[in-house]
């Protein structure tokens, strides 16, 4: 039982960067934009978060810098795809390549440095309850922020007027435009939000999970976050679940090895990817349901026709 609690704690740590990135991208896709530059924004957030935390000694400033950096990267994507109407798939890939290169360049002076990891909170009494305490009341503040983000986004999309407008734009941008909503404006705002979330997700890796900088520290987690968005059928609660499921598979395969169960390591390392594919198949095979959920205008260019 103790081990199970420990494993679940590990899952939460491993999944939190994915939660941030996936929730941000979910909002972007709900608005009808596909930003494949998630990995690039995450890795830029990772270096910004680490460098600023190290230089200022403040996590708050560091995380904020990561969010701003992610948003700036997203605004570049937004300018190209929303204003200049470039192809979203190509622009997103370019952003990833650019982000990986630029972060490595910026990070040159920061390899070999280290900061104290962000401390976990400890709430009197609550954190000491067996099982429930360690699972619910003794994480670092960003874990709670990621959960709050998921809840907040769910509420925003379902219950607010702006959320409704955002979804309408993702469903049918021409109609939304005809009613008088600013398609480009809303999409830019969604992109900035998504970029900020991705930046924080990257910074979670470089300031909390492993407070250090090495090139390519995100190691493909941005792509996983993209898969999680599809897995979630564009619903925040399911995105949260998806991130924890992926984190769970990653952690469990490590534990399986620790117990000495005889499966080749490379096959185990394939597991998270194979499970993601399997889940994608399961949720998308019902054609009616997926097309009900998928934003109809996803990745389609919007231009005002006269």
């Amino acid at each position: 039982m103790d081990l199970l609690v420990l494993i679940l704690q590990g899952v939460i740590v491993s999944a939190t960067s994915l939660v941030f990135a996936a929730i941000g991208e979910l909002v972007v896709e709900r608005a009808g934009v596909l930003n494949l530059g998630l990995e690039g924004m995450m890795v830029l957030g990772a270096i910004a978060g680490f460098a600023v935390t190290l230089d200022t000694g403040s996590y708050v400033v560091g995380i904020a810098a990561a969010a701003v950096t992610g948003a700036i990267a997203a605004s570049l994507f937004g300018f190209l795809t929303q204003i200049l109407l470039s192809n979203q798939v190509a622009t997103g890939l370019a952003l990833t390549i650019f982000g990986l290169g630029l972060s490595a360049l910026l990070g040159q002076g920061y390899s070999g440095e280290s900061t104290e990891p962000l401390a976990k909170i400890h709430i009197f009494f609550l954190s000491d309850i067996p099982i429930v305490g360690p699972l619910m009341f003794s994480h670092d503040p960003l874990v709670y922020l990621s959960l709050a983000l998921a809840v907040g986004v769910a509420w925003f999309l379902a219950k607010t007027r702006t959320g409704l407008i955002l979804r309408a734009i993702g469903e049918n941008h021409d109609a939304a435009h005809a009613i008088g909503y600013s398609v480009v404006g809303v999409r830019m705002a969604a992109l900035l939000f998504g970029g900020a979330c991705a930046g924080v997700g990257g910074a979670y890796l470089s300031t909390v999970q492993t407070p250090l900088w090495v090139e390519n520290i995100t190691a493909g987690r941005g792509w996983i976050a993209l898969a999680i968005v599809v897995f979630s059928a564009w619903r925040p609660g399911r995105a949260l679940l998806g991130a924890y499921l992926f984190g769970g598979v990653t952690i469990v395969q490590l534990h399986v090895q620790g117990f000495g169960i005889d499966i080749e390591a490379q096959y185990l390392s394939m597991l998270p990817y194979l499970v993601t594919i399997l889940v994608l198949v399961l949720i998308s095979h019902d054609k009616a349901r997926i097309s009900l959920n998928a934003p109809a205008c996803l990745a389609k260019p919007f231009f005002v026709s006269s």
Partner: peptide, 8 residues
Amino acid sequence: AVTGVFQG
């Protein structure tokens, strides 16, 4: 890293 930045 310059190569990647350039390509981007």
